[in-house]
Design a protein around this nucleic acid. Sequence first.
DNA 1: TATTGTTTTAAACGTTTGTTTAAAATAATT
DNA 2: AATTATTTTAAACAAACGTTTAAAACAATA
Lengths: 197, 197
Amino acid sequence: MSTEEKIKKTALSLFLEKGFERTSIRDIALKAKINIALLNYYFRSKENLFNSIFSGLLEKYTPTLNGILGSSLPIEEKIHLYVGEYIDILLENPKLTYFVLSVLHRNPDKITQMKIFQSLYNTGDFSKQFMEEVRKGNIKEVDPTQFFINMLSLITFPFTIKQVIMEKNHMNEDTFKQFMHQRKQVITDMLLLTIKK
Amino acid sequence: MSTEEKIKKTALSLFLEKGFERTSIRDIALKAKINIALLNYYFRSKENLFNSIFSGLLEKYTPTLNGILGSSLPIEEKIHLYVGEYIDILLENPKLTYFVLSVLHRNPDKITQMKIFQSLYNTGDFSKQFMEEVRKGNIKEVDPTQFFINMLSLITFPFTIKQVIMEKNHMNEDTFKQFMHQRKQVITDMLLLTIKK
DNA sequence: TATTGTTTTAAACGTTTGTTTAAAATAATT
DNA sequence: AATTATTTTAAACAAACGTTTAAAACAATA
């Protein structure tokens, strides 16, 4: 593995675990077994390293999700696929949700957020289709914005309180996974129920 | 206002806005117009100051919510009240949800979490009542854990992406408030629909 | 093999961090 | 009024931070 890759990989794991502020470049260098100066040699600054990593994450995960929303599938099928795929992604990377929230909290300036929520909160196609189905009388008259936020909340929030859920319900990593797999159906059923006429 | 109160109030506003790590005790001292050393005179450390503030917040907000869950009201009424009250609290303090999440993320050690989620994730009474209603055949057979997480997710998560919601839907502070007030009904309806036979 | 370009290193840079000190100012008590 | 206790102050502390320097090691090229 190249030095650049080693830095990125190590930095990501530390950023996910401890957050940006509590991860020092010396932590990264130590764990990646590289010299501190290499960090500023490949990436110009810690901030730059972080942005590079974050962009990489977005490019890795958002195309699949946006592909589902932008497809020509019926709305019920989209919901079903979106919920399943999103939960699968977060099961592989449970700290991703808090990671994104921390980015939003750290960079409240609008321009920086643009790129983030353009790919992570991409409702354009979905809302159009949703309203069209309402117009046709196929589904109940529900606010698409509220609906999308419902979907996002039900999928992602549980991962931000994963430890609490696990301890309160005496789960281990495996039973939590199981619980989240069950949850796919719970969420899909719930969402479809609210729009079913 | 006493010096101690000034410190606490100022520190809370900065912790909410910028987070624990990015708030220095010099920031606090400057904004509160007090000497840095007073911070360690009244509270022994920055960490201690934070814990004191956090405990205060829990004591302020959790009794109302746990009072609702622990009451002898019918389950449908509990849900309705809980959703309304919780959203009202978060509308007054929109950054509270992320604040709590950041505490969970910063202190993954179990003991510290105990106090937090014993008051913020207090499902004992509620789950019992829920299962009793299921047994009686009054509501659908739904997993109370999934149900409670649904409720929590739908209420709290939108506040963690408040800025995104606002910018994506061209809202200002007022229209966001309006949106969240509408959301009370949306969530309550949704939750009741999932358990209604 | 000599030369150029790239990567890695050890060491230091100036700031900022949370915390402590010890004296000064103020308030409370006798 | 004198003494004690409490509160506030300016200044310094050591440690940690992100970043930079300049030389060394290595690789690529001619």
